[in-house]
Design a protein around this nucleic acid. Structure first.
Length: 203
DNA sequence: CTCTCGATGCGCT
DNA sequence: GCGCATCGAGAGA
Protein backbone atom coordinates (compact mmCIF):
# COMPACT_ATOMS: atom_id res chain seq x y z
CA UNK A 1 0.00 0.00 0.00
CA UNK A 2 1.13 3.53 -0.68
CA UNK A 3 2.09 6.08 1.91
CA UNK A 4 -0.45 8.64 3.07
CA UNK A 5 -0.07 11.83 1.12
CA UNK A 6 1.68 14.42 3.32
CA UNK A 7 0.04 17.72 4.16
CA UNK A 8 2.46 19.43 1.76
CA UNK A 9 0.75 17.65 -1.11
CA UNK A 10 -2.47 19.54 -0.37
CA UNK A 11 -0.76 22.85 0.41
CA UNK A 12 -0.29 23.75 -3.26
CA UNK A 13 -2.34 25.55 -5.91
CA UNK A 14 -5.72 23.82 -6.09
CA UNK A 15 -5.62 23.25 -9.86
CA UNK A 16 -2.36 21.31 -9.37
CA UNK A 17 -3.76 19.28 -6.50
CA UNK A 18 -6.91 18.45 -8.46
CA UNK A 19 -4.84 16.97 -11.29
CA UNK A 20 -2.29 15.45 -8.92
CA UNK A 21 -5.01 13.47 -7.11
CA UNK A 22 -5.85 11.51 -10.28
CA UNK A 23 -4.29 8.06 -9.86
CA UNK A 24 -4.09 8.31 -6.04
CA UNK A 25 -6.07 5.97 -3.78
CA UNK A 26 -8.87 7.14 -1.46
CA UNK A 27 -9.04 4.82 1.56
CA UNK A 28 -11.64 4.50 4.28
CA UNK A 29 -11.47 2.04 7.16
CA UNK A 30 -14.84 0.39 7.64
CA UNK A 31 -14.81 -1.85 10.67
CA UNK A 32 -11.91 -4.21 10.08
CA UNK A 33 -11.92 -3.84 6.31
CA UNK A 34 -10.50 -1.27 3.95
CA UNK A 35 -12.73 0.31 1.37
CA UNK A 36 -10.74 2.02 -1.36
CA UNK A 37 -10.58 3.14 -4.94
CA UNK A 38 -8.30 5.01 -7.29
CA UNK A 39 -9.37 8.60 -7.96
CA UNK A 40 -10.31 9.06 -11.64
CA UNK A 41 -12.28 12.33 -11.58
CA UNK A 42 -11.95 15.60 -9.61
CA UNK A 43 -13.07 19.21 -9.67
CA UNK A 44 -11.24 22.28 -8.34
CA UNK A 45 -13.10 24.92 -6.34
CA UNK A 46 -10.98 28.04 -6.07
CA UNK A 47 -12.26 29.94 -3.07
CA UNK A 48 -14.41 33.04 -2.36
CA UNK A 49 -13.79 34.49 -5.83
CA UNK A 50 -15.13 31.31 -7.48
CA UNK A 51 -18.88 31.91 -7.96
CA UNK A 52 -19.55 28.15 -8.13
CA UNK A 53 -17.92 27.42 -4.78
CA UNK A 54 -19.61 27.08 -1.40
CA UNK A 55 -16.82 29.42 -0.26
CA UNK A 56 -18.38 32.28 -2.26
CA UNK A 57 -20.19 33.52 0.87
CA UNK A 58 -17.01 33.39 2.92
CA UNK A 59 -16.31 31.14 5.91
CA UNK A 60 -19.93 30.30 6.79
CA UNK A 61 -20.62 27.38 9.08
CA UNK A 62 -21.00 25.02 6.14
CA UNK A 63 -17.97 26.17 4.16
CA UNK A 64 -15.65 26.70 7.14
CA UNK A 65 -13.63 23.49 6.63
CA UNK A 66 -12.36 24.84 3.31
CA UNK A 67 -10.96 27.83 5.19
CA UNK A 68 -9.09 25.57 7.59
CA UNK A 69 -5.92 23.54 7.38
CA UNK A 70 -5.15 21.74 4.09
CA UNK A 71 -5.27 17.96 4.11
CA UNK A 72 -8.65 17.74 5.82
CA UNK A 73 -12.00 16.56 4.46
CA UNK A 74 -14.87 18.89 3.64
CA UNK A 75 -17.98 16.71 3.42
CA UNK A 76 -21.41 18.25 2.90
CA UNK A 77 -25.00 17.09 2.50
CA UNK A 78 -27.02 18.17 -0.54
CA UNK A 79 -30.23 17.52 -2.48
CA UNK A 80 -31.76 16.22 0.73
CA UNK A 81 -30.07 12.84 0.33
CA UNK A 82 -26.52 12.93 -0.94
CA UNK A 83 -23.07 13.62 0.47
CA UNK A 84 -20.03 14.92 -1.41
CA UNK A 85 -16.40 14.84 -0.31
CA UNK A 86 -13.65 17.37 -0.90
CA UNK A 87 -10.00 17.54 0.10
CA UNK A 88 -9.11 20.96 1.50
CA UNK A 89 -6.18 22.60 -0.27
CA UNK A 90 -3.76 25.55 0.03
CA UNK A 91 -3.12 27.57 3.17
CA UNK A 92 -5.43 28.38 6.07
CA UNK A 93 -7.97 31.00 4.98
CA UNK A 94 -7.86 30.07 1.28
CA UNK A 95 -11.38 28.61 1.12
CA UNK A 96 -10.25 26.17 -1.58
CA UNK A 97 -10.76 22.46 -2.12
CA UNK A 98 -10.98 19.56 -4.57
CA UNK A 99 -14.22 17.62 -5.02
CA UNK A 100 -13.63 13.89 -5.46
CA UNK A 101 -16.08 12.87 -8.21
CA UNK A 102 -15.31 9.26 -9.11
CA UNK A 103 -13.22 6.24 -8.14
CA UNK A 104 -12.14 3.00 -9.75
CA UNK A 105 -12.99 0.55 -6.92
CA UNK A 106 -10.05 -1.48 -5.66
CA UNK A 107 -10.79 -2.90 -2.18
CA UNK A 108 -14.01 -3.90 -0.41
CA UNK A 109 -16.31 -3.91 -3.41
CA UNK A 110 -18.83 -6.23 -1.78
CA UNK A 111 -19.18 -3.97 1.27
CA UNK A 112 -19.44 -0.99 -1.08
CA UNK A 113 -22.26 -2.75 -2.93
CA UNK A 114 -24.11 -3.34 0.34
CA UNK A 115 -23.67 0.32 1.27
CA UNK A 116 -24.94 1.44 -2.13
CA UNK A 117 -27.95 -0.93 -2.15
CA UNK A 118 -29.38 0.45 1.12
CA UNK A 119 -31.47 3.26 -0.33
CA UNK A 120 -32.11 1.75 -3.72
CA UNK A 121 -35.43 0.47 -4.99
CA UNK A 122 -34.36 -2.17 -7.48
CA UNK A 123 -31.86 -4.43 -5.75
CA UNK A 124 -30.19 -5.43 -8.98
CA UNK A 125 -26.45 -5.94 -8.97
CA UNK A 126 -24.48 -2.75 -9.44
CA UNK A 127 -21.82 -2.83 -12.12
CA UNK A 128 -18.23 -2.23 -11.05
CA UNK A 129 -18.16 0.84 -13.27
CA UNK A 130 -21.23 2.28 -11.50
CA UNK A 131 -20.14 1.65 -7.90
CA UNK A 132 -18.29 4.94 -7.40
CA UNK A 133 -18.99 6.84 -10.66
CA UNK A 134 -20.19 10.07 -9.07
CA UNK A 135 -19.62 12.17 -5.94
CA UNK A 136 -22.79 10.97 -4.21
CA UNK A 137 -22.22 7.35 -5.21
CA UNK A 138 -18.69 7.19 -3.87
CA UNK A 139 -19.70 8.70 -0.53
CA UNK A 140 -22.48 6.14 -0.20
CA UNK A 141 -20.16 3.29 -1.20
CA UNK A 142 -17.42 4.30 1.25
CA UNK A 143 -19.88 5.25 4.01
CA UNK A 144 -18.79 8.90 4.02
CA UNK A 145 -21.23 11.24 5.72
CA UNK A 146 -21.34 14.42 7.75
CA UNK A 147 -19.77 12.68 10.75
CA UNK A 148 -16.50 12.63 8.80
CA UNK A 149 -16.66 16.31 7.86
CA UNK A 150 -13.40 18.00 8.80
CA UNK A 151 -11.62 14.65 9.30
CA UNK A 152 -7.83 14.94 9.18
CA UNK A 153 -6.63 13.07 6.09
CA UNK A 154 -3.46 12.13 7.97
CA UNK A 155 -5.57 10.18 10.51
CA UNK A 156 -6.60 6.52 10.51
CA UNK A 157 -10.20 6.70 9.28
CA UNK A 158 -10.03 8.43 5.93
CA UNK A 159 -6.98 9.27 3.87
CA UNK A 160 -5.45 9.34 0.39
CA UNK A 161 -2.45 7.20 -0.52
CA UNK A 162 0.32 7.93 -2.95
CA UNK A 163 0.01 6.19 -6.30
CA UNK A 164 0.49 7.08 -9.90
CA UNK A 165 1.13 10.53 -11.20
CA UNK A 166 -1.17 10.69 -14.18
CA UNK A 167 0.62 11.78 -17.37
CA UNK A 168 -0.75 15.05 -18.72
CA UNK A 169 -1.84 13.46 -21.99
CA UNK A 170 -4.22 11.12 -20.15
CA UNK A 171 -5.94 13.93 -18.23
CA UNK A 172 -9.21 15.18 -19.75
CA UNK A 173 -10.47 18.66 -18.84
CA UNK A 174 -14.00 20.05 -18.95
CA UNK A 175 -16.35 22.52 -17.26
CA UNK A 176 -17.50 21.46 -13.81
CA UNK A 177 -20.73 19.47 -13.54
CA UNK A 178 -23.97 20.67 -11.96
CA UNK A 179 -23.12 24.33 -11.51
CA UNK A 180 -24.61 27.50 -13.01
CA UNK A 181 -21.84 30.05 -12.52
CA UNK A 182 -18.27 29.49 -13.64
CA UNK A 183 -18.97 27.19 -16.55
CA UNK A 184 -16.32 29.04 -18.56
CA UNK A 185 -13.59 27.40 -16.46
CA UNK A 186 -12.36 23.88 -17.40
CA UNK A 187 -11.76 22.87 -13.79
CA UNK A 188 -13.05 19.30 -13.95
CA UNK A 189 -10.29 16.75 -14.48
CA UNK A 190 -10.64 13.06 -15.32
CA UNK A 191 -8.69 10.07 -16.56
CA UNK A 192 -9.52 10.25 -20.24
CA UNK A 193 -9.80 6.51 -20.96
CA UNK A 194 -11.40 5.42 -17.66
CA UNK A 195 -14.82 3.72 -17.74
CA UNK A 196 -15.28 4.65 -14.04
CA UNK A 197 -15.92 8.39 -14.46
CA UNK A 198 -19.38 9.87 -13.81
CA UNK A 199 -22.01 9.42 -16.52
CA UNK A 200 -23.39 12.92 -16.72
CA UNK A 201 -20.74 14.72 -18.73
CA UNK A 202 -20.81 14.62 -22.50
CA UNK A 203 -17.89 16.93 -22.94
C1' DC B 1 -29.44 4.59 -25.77
C1' DT B 2 -31.86 9.46 -24.59
C1' DC B 3 -34.42 12.69 -21.82
C1' DT B 4 -37.31 14.26 -17.95
C1' DC B 5 -38.57 14.52 -13.41
C1' DG B 6 -39.31 13.56 -8.39
C1' DA B 7 -37.18 12.79 -3.98
C1' DT B 8 -35.94 15.33 0.14
C1' DG B 9 -33.17 18.37 3.87
C1' DC B 10 -31.10 22.43 4.64
C1' DG B 11 -27.90 26.67 3.94
C1' DC B 12 -28.36 30.98 2.67
C1' DT B 13 -29.07 36.18 -0.20
C1' DG C 1 -38.72 30.49 0.10
C1' DC C 2 -35.35 29.22 -3.39
C1' DG C 3 -32.01 26.46 -5.21
C1' DC C 4 -28.89 23.21 -4.88
C1' DA C 5 -20.97 20.74 -6.46
C1' DT C 6 -27.07 14.32 -7.30
C1' DC C 7 -29.16 9.97 -8.35
C1' DG C 8 -32.08 6.67 -10.38
C1' DA C 9 -36.70 5.48 -12.16
C1' DG C 10 -39.58 5.58 -15.95
C1' DA C 11 -40.89 6.60 -20.65
C1' DG C 12 -39.95 6.88 -25.38
C1' DA C 13 -37.21 5.83 -29.52
Amino acid sequence: MGEKLPRDFYDRPTLEVAQGLLGKRLVRTFGRTRLSGVIVETEAYLGPADAASHARFGPTSRASPMFGEPGHAYIYFTYGMHHCMNAVTEGIGSGTGVLIRALEPSEGQEQMRRNRLRNRKAKTRILDTDLCSGPGKLCQALGLDISLNHADLSGNILWIEAGKTMPTDRIGKSPRVGIREGREHPWRFYVADSPHVSAHPKY
